[in-house]
């Protein structure tokens, strides 16, 4: 069996890639995809920990609460996509660009 720490390391790498992407990339959709990567790295960490807390052949409360959290994250991420893409489309209609550097009416 692959040790849990490998999964956690992978999830940490994904999280860092996601966070760097948000800070470095300028296209609103790519930034948004990087945020999704961060959320999914958390999902990976949750299921990996849940597997660790799962005794063989039995259902444990501890494992379930982690697995259920994953479903909540996926649902909320879907809701966020709905709102986020709508906002990006609205901006594209007025600006004809989704480059965040070109959205700078407000100083700061």
């Amino acid at each position: 069996m692959i040790p849990t720490s490998y999964y956690i390391l992978l999830s940490a790498i994904l999280f860092v890639i996601g966070a760097t992407g948000v800070l470095v990339r300028r296209n609103a959709i790519v930034i948004f995809m990087s945020v999704e990567l961060m959320l999914n790295s958390a999902n990976l960490a949750f299921v990996a920990f849940a597997r660790q807390f799962q005794p063989a052949g039995a259902v444990s409360q501890a494992a379930l609460s982690g697995q259920v959290f994953v479903f909540f994250i996926m649902t909320v991420a879907a809701a966020e996509v709905a709102v986020g893409l709508a906002l990006i489309v609205a901006i594209f209609k007025t600006k004809h660009s989704i480059d965040v550097d070109e959205v700078h009416q407000l100083k700061g």
């Binding site: 930034i31 945020v35 958390a42 920990f49 966020e80 906002l87 959205v103």
Partner: peptide
């Protein structure tokens, strides 16, 4: 207004990413 919404959304979602990963570590 659109710009304000986009900034709020991107940074808010970014913050949720941190929060959720923090919860994952706490759970671990």
């Amino acid at each position: 207004s659109e710009e304000s919404a986009l900034k709020y959304f991107l940074l808010g979602a970014f913050a949720s990413g941190f929060f959720v990963y923090g919860v994952a570590l706490t759970y671990g």
